[in-house]
């Protein structure tokens, strides 16, 4: 199958006085039609910047974003605008991403109007039904809706133009547990009904495990491990992925695990080093780590940027 989206050697650098911040530092991946890909990592690792570059909300410093065989990064503003109906985004905080002066009807109408897709109000009713909201909510303003309802309006707005690809930027992190699971099940249903591909950005690995088929793990602007959910969650091969997974508390007092504690904190993305980005914090660091680390393919496209991938040291730890 032909990939829907190919990201090739994506870089995004920002100038910060004398320094250059390497927010995204050479990212490569494909997304196929109808699949849900999770992009995980800690704050500041470049997840959101990657997504914003893919959607061309930020101009990448370098690299190609090939969406349906068109390079979005090389496209000029005007044709890009008409392409935007095919890729949409749901933001983290619905309070900030919904216009407080627009009622739901106007919020939902706007993208349809812009792309010349608006027919009649019946269409809006359909959309509301899709995201399990009532027709009477159309007249409400954001402050009259609960957190979960607002996020559903955000989802309705994103899917209104029948996109092929939707970026979900931490859509459930502001919600309570019982609501979170409800929104996730809604997202999964919509994905199946409309055959959309998702890029699900989150620092919450449990939601990613439950929604996504494939996972990309990012650290300091690079993808250090990618593979199917089963491979990455059940058989992680990068020390960072292992440390990240072992740090997540499991709600079951019967389970006792050994925790891999990394030393110190995530370094600044100003001082980018040659070689593995984890070398200063890794308990198993060795000489080869100071040279560029290629991906090791462990089969089924399970790629790991660690010299120890697949070795005894990792699997015995």
């Amino acid at each position: 199958m032909e990939p829907l989206l190919r990201v090739k050697d994506l870089h995004k650098h920002y100038k910060d006085g004398r320094y250059t911040v390497h927010a995204v530092n050479g990212v490569n991946f494909d997304i196929f039609p109808g699949e849900a890909v999770g992009l995980v990592g800690e704050s500041g690792c470049g997840k959101s910047t990657t997504a914003r570059c893919i959607l061309m909300l930020e101009q990448p410093t370098h690299g190609k974003i090939i969406f349906k065989n068109q390079d979005l990064a090389a496209m000029s503003e005007h044709p890009l605008r008409s392409w935007r109906r095919f890729f949409q985004i749901v933001f983290q905080d619905p309070n900030e991403s919904l216009n407080p002066r627009f009622n739901v009807k106007r919020t939902l109408k706007e993208p349809l109007f812009l792309h010349g897709l608006y027919q009649d109000s019946h269409q809006l009713g359909e959309l509301m039904k899709r995201v399990t909201l009532e027709i009477e909510h159309l007249e409400r303003y954001p402050h009259q809706l609960s957190g979960g309802q607002k996020q559903r309006v955000g989802i309705a707005r994103a899917i209104s133009t029948s996109p092929d690809f939707v970026v979900l930027d931490e859509p459930t992190s502001s919600l309570d547990m019982s609501l979170r699971i409800h929104i996730l099940s809604l997202l999964r249903r919509l994905q199946r009904e409309m055959n959309m591909a998702y890029l699900f950005i989150s620092h919450d690995l449990s939601t990613v495990h439950n929604l996504c088929n494939r996972v990309l793990v990012m650290y300091l602007g690079r993808i250090i491990e990618m593979g199917t959910s089963e491979d990455v969650f059940n058989n992680p091969q990068h020390i960072y992925t292992r440390a990240l997974l072992s740090a997540i508390p499991i709600p079951d007092p019967a389970i006792k695990r050994k925790r891999i504690l990394l030393q110190g904190e995530t370094p600044n993305s100003r001082d980018i080093e040659v070689g593995c980005s984890l070398q200063k914090r890794c308990p198993y660091v060795r000489q080869e780590c100071s040279f560029p680390v290629p991906y090791t393919d462990l089969g089924k496209r399970h790629l790991v940027a660690c010299v120890l991938a697949g070795s005894e040291i990792i699997n015995g730890s």
């Binding site: 929604l211 709600p251 079951d252 389970i255």
Partner: peptide
């Protein structure tokens, strides 16, 4: 309603 990282839950 808790999601666990070590196994998949039934979302629906």
């Amino acid at each position: 309603s808790i999601l666990r990282v070590d196994r998949k839950s039934d979302l629906d």
